[in-house]
Design a protein around this nucleic acid. Structure first.
Lengths: 189, 189
DNA sequence: AAACAAAACTAACGATTGTTAGTTACATTT
DNA sequence: AAATGTAACTAACAATCGTTAGTTTTGTTT
């Protein structure tokens, strides 16, 4: 995915800046400064500021979409599927926390790709919901409002990037053990 | 708190717009348009765009700070304290979801009040942490990494505003019953 | 050494930004 | 009727925005 071209470097630098202040607050001159070039030089590699945002977000969204499809189609228990979803979020967070920040906070600034993004997001949520509903139906999951459960899990998973970057090198293995425990089994003894 | 002055109306309108696209993407002309006046007229009531953001965020942050202080000083069980924290977030979300969006997404655009805000946020997290640690020490809470528990609870509570505005009128009472269940007792049968 | 491609540069553009200055309209109080 | 305070207006500003055009530098391939 990362071809280490000049364009990829610009996109990586931009994603990092977007994470700190958001897409709208970052100027092309900010990105250029961090690259140690002039703003106009960016345009030898990218077409527009918009293209940078689109590239960052859509790439990640497609990753989620593809992996979720695999999980939802598998013949595992609900518990195992939920574990895989949690692991999926942990993996992408570790691999590309900056891009996740843009996906979470700046998706509304997509233009041409906005509808496409929303469609992927809705499909993701629907797949997640159907996994939960199956679990409730067969007794694996507690019979409570599935929307509250869905929201509660998703909001933690989606903002994992915030916590992961704040703390230093959190061990992925430990995270994959502890997160499902906390999220699925609760914290009360 | 809401005195229904012209200034308060501007701040409420601004908060709503900030929620949709973020502080940086919203112009004074956007705010003026929604007020059905000209941008320059806003300055009869407010001093600057910055002042609007500061007012929105600091007011809410101080509310959280004060209530958390009461909770942490009370002589209740850990479970009861956690319930009160959850209820606190639900109450503020219902009362002022727009302001919560600004607090979550645009706090980094505070300038003169940035240090003050960060201090309040850190104190809030420390109080939360100490409640969890007490619970782990006396066996009320499962002996797992408290940082993961803290992050997991906080991220759900902080983004409640997203979910609350998407769904229509969610019943506060039902939410106060279901959220603690889901967050504290888990979802696995 | 000549040729070529990649990537930087300077200079500038039209549009938009937050904000100020000065003025006018309107309603309430003297 | 005069005075006052509130809240709107028009017009404009200096700064900054994303972006384009044209040129020069740099490093590699012939």
């Amino acid at each position: 995915m990362n071809k280490n071209t000049r364009k990829d470097k610009i996109i990586a630098v931009a994603a990092k800046l977007f994470k700190e202040k958001g897409y709208s607050a970052i100027t092309m001159r900010d990105i250029a400064d961090k690259m140690e070039i002039k703003a106009a030089s960016l345009y030898n590699h990218i077409q527009s500021k918009q293209e940078i945002l689109d590239t960052i977000i859509i790439q990640i969204a497609e990753q989620f979409t593809a992996k979720m499809q695999t999980i939802v189609e598998s013949k595992e228990t609900t518990y195992q599927k939920l574990r895989h979803i949690i692991e999926l979020h942990i993996d992408i967070t570790i691999e590309n926390a900056d891009a996740l920040a843009a996906l979470n906070n700046d998706w509304m600034h997509l233009e041409g790709n906005l509808a496409y993004f929303i469609q992927m997001r809705d499909a993701y949520e629907n797949n997640f919901r159907s996994i939960l509903n199956t679990g409730i139906a067969n007794g694996e999951i507690v019979a409570r409002d599935p929307e509250i459960i869905l929201f509660s899990l998703l909001s933690t998973l989606r903002t994992l990037y915030l916590w992961y970057t704040k703390k230093g090198g959190v061990d992925a293995k430990k995270l994959k053990e502890d997160m499902p425990e906390t999220l699925l089994n609760g914290i009360i003894r």
